[in-house]
């Protein structure tokens, strides 16, 4: 059973002049538990739109999207929000740490929306996750006191603290220097593998993309599998 399946998914928007702009066209994709795939594309190719669809933040205008074999249209409103909180972790290019909150508070924030034991143990779980990303000594540091690499590690800890089954990373190294970016990606790849979560990295950086096992290119809204020396043709 695929964790995530897209069948002929398209996304278009109507422009003010009433013409239709097709951002994504007939996308087919299956993501299994433990997958690691990268999606590479230029600016304006539709990467963020695809990420929003994969993260259940947006709905396709055509085609069908299944999460755990449940069609997206059956997940409405609060149920979709709760599914997103429980099963999907986001990592953003600009880290998007909440200002004024310590690293510990930032990582504990997603657990505020949990309804299980994680809610009551959120501080301990957050501290453990920060330990895992090597920030055990920076629990009470504010974002402004952390370097870019440290901030992204906090963001990774925050994305993983609820034990998601799908991690969506949007240009995770876009705001970091090459060396720091490589270290952060290695960490992300490592932790995702350990937790068994699927990792989808959207990037324009070939080095980051190369860490994935399956590779895709998004060009003018069309998603195509890319062959690599190590993996051969993927689909």
């Amino acid at each position: 059973m695929a964790l995530l399946r897209l069948d002929g998914v398209a996304r278009s928007v109507q422009l003010p002049d009433l013409t239709t702009l097709e951002i994504l066209r007939s996308i087919d994709l299956e993501v299994e538990v433990g997958d690691h795939l990268s999606i590479v594309g230029r600016s304006g190719s539709g990467k963020s739109t695809l990420l929003n669809l994969l993260g259940l933040l947006d709905a396709p205008t055509a085609g069908r999207l299944f999460f755990d074999d449940v069609p997206l249209e059956r997940l409405r409103g609060a149920a979709r929000d709760r599914r997103r909180g429980r099963d999907i972790g986001f990592i953003f290019q600009q880290f998007n740490l909440l200002p004024g909150r310590t690293a510990l508070e930032n990582v504990a924030t997603p657990l505020l929306y949990a309804h299980d034991r994680g809610f009551w143990r959120r501080e301990r779980l957050a501290a453990e996750m920060l330990e895992r990303v090597g920030l055990g000594d920076r629990l009470h540091s504010f974002p402004t006191q952390l370097s870019g690499g440290e901030q992204q590690r906090v963001a990774i800890a925050r994305a993983l603290v609820r034990g998601p089954r799908l991690i969506l990373a949007d240009e995770p190294t876009g705001a970091l220097d090459v060396e720091t970016g490589a270290r952060v990606m290695a960490l992300l790849d490592d932790i995702a593998e350990q937790s068994g979560a699927a990792l989808i990295t959207i990037t324009h950086d070939p080095n980051v993309a190369s860490l994935a096992r399956r590779h895709y290119r998004l060009d003018q809204g069309v998603l195509t599998a890319v062959a690599t020396a190590s993996t051969g043709v993927t689909a």
Binding site: D81, R82, R83, N96, P110, Y113, R158
Partner: peptide, 16 residues
């Protein structure tokens, strides 16, 4: 608004 968007991405429902 940005912070609210981030919270929604963590699973905060509209009601919440």
């Amino acid at each position: 608004i940005r912070e609210i968007g981030i919270r929604r991405s963590f699973g905060a429902t509209g009601g919440r």
